[in-house]
Write a protein that binds this DNA or RNA. Structure first.
Lengths: 234, 234
DNA sequence: GGCACAGCGATTGCATGCACTTTTACGAGA
DNA sequence: TCTCGTAAAAGTGCATGCAATCGCTGTGCC
């Protein structure tokens, strides 16, 4: 081994592995509790065990996999309780970001937030779910950045990534897009007028609603492992 | 290589390395910005580069070291801004824990908290700084656990550990022990009567004051590297 | 028939070696 | 003397091989 690997995008091999394995977990190709065998993964992606090990280590730090010494790694099993705990944390973190944003965002940041938000209204009318999802992520990221606190940003992004597998559900509910947009609107309005308390509360409520939507989904089994072509993503 | 390593306590070799290197960073033997050469570290602790690399990876995830691809690892440099950001986050997280504790702690937990807190009063009178520090950590840990939210607990503990190097300063200030105890007292009182808002505010204020005490210290250079015998700790 | 222990296979943990990237030092030209 | 280019040296990234550990299965003993 080996010739060129297929579809390498950028970064080191380990980065590729983190994304590749992480993606499979997030998208449900790898199911919670499933054993992650180093040799198999190495063979699957045509690399040696070393980068696989390091990738598993990082994923473990991210909370996507669990590792026990001499016992190998498994896809992290998220209990209903833990999931609730993460959404709860997310709500609090978003609230903090919104509060800080309300009092710290520069005029430029506020304008950008407002403009993007208004632009996304069109996507709601069109029912463009994927595009809206993109704007949704953008929107929240703006909020996190607007807090002007690097550590809060890190905590929030980390928590969001751990929740990613459980958030696909939310846009499956009918009328969710419009509702999401309206909730965003409340947050934006509060931030624009610098209303710290209102911004925090609105952000918290927003996550709580997403949480309820996702809770249902958490019980449902994700997609089957199936035949999985070797391409890596994002 | 090699005969038995010196002073191995428990866990895998990587665990040892994480503790060993982490300790040296936290205690200031390794200074911010200092380059961490894999080969040197491996030679120093008489292991191969593989576990050193994995340890550096974990420390990087913890935020103690910074790693750039093909450029090696350095001890993380914490700017004044980032430090402030971490303390700010810590204040918010402690506030959340206190609020949740105020509404969720079981009667047993409340009693334990109160008893331990009262017991520590004696240490203040004696001026037993080290013992008080232990109780202080205990106290806060109880608060984090009392929130009954695993994820919040994880975020809080993680942030606390990242702040550890900058907290040694606080007890060097005269009268700090008594002040700390009184602040704890306000928190405990609020929790005992289930006053969510008051508990949150008191916890936030408590951290803010610690933050100010530490900010001064952050500018000061930690101890020199010096001659550093090879034993591992903790 | 059930439990304990020993041997074996499978898998992880660590060591070592090679290839590639980055950095640094030296020399040629302006 | 300064700048740019090139080549050697240092150091990281990955591959491979060996040793140690864990789990399982089969056999012997209670």
């Amino acid at each position: 081994m080996s010739g060129k690997r297929s579809l390498i995008r950028s970064g080191t091999t380990v980065d590729q592995m983190v994304r590749a394995i992480g993606d499979r977990i997030v998208t449900g190709f790898l199911r919670p509790g499933e054993k992650l065998d180093e040799a198999s993964l190495a063979a699957r992606f045509d690399v040696s065990r070393t980068p696989v090990r390091e990738a598993l280590g990082r994923l473990s730090a991210m909370g996507l996999v669990e590792r026990r010494p001499n016992r190998g790694a498994t896809v992290a099993v998220v209990t209903q309780e833990h999931l609730a705990s993460m959404f709860e944390s997310m709500a609090e973190l978003e609230a903090i970001c919104a509060r800080f944003s309300a009092e710290r965002m520069t005029t430029a940041e506020r304008r950008a937030l407002e403009i993007e938000h208004q632009a996304s209204a069109r996507l709601v009318q069109l029912g463009a779910e994927e595009d809206y999802e993109y704007f949704n992520t953008e929107f929240h990221t703006r909020l996190y950045r607007g807090a002007h606190s690097k550590h809060i940003y890190e905590l929030t992004v980390m928590t969001r990534s751990r929740l990613a597998p459980f958030r696909r559900a939310q846009f499956m509910l009918p009328g969710r897009l419009a509702k999401s947009w309206q909730e965003h609107d409340v947050i934006v309005t509060a931030i624009m007028r610098g209303d710290v308390a209102a911004a925090g509360q609105a952000a918290k409520d927003h996550v709580s609603i997403v949480s309820e939507a996702s809770a249902v989904f958490a019980a449902v089994d994700p997609k089957k492992p199936g035949t999985d072509s070797i391409g890596m993503s994002t």
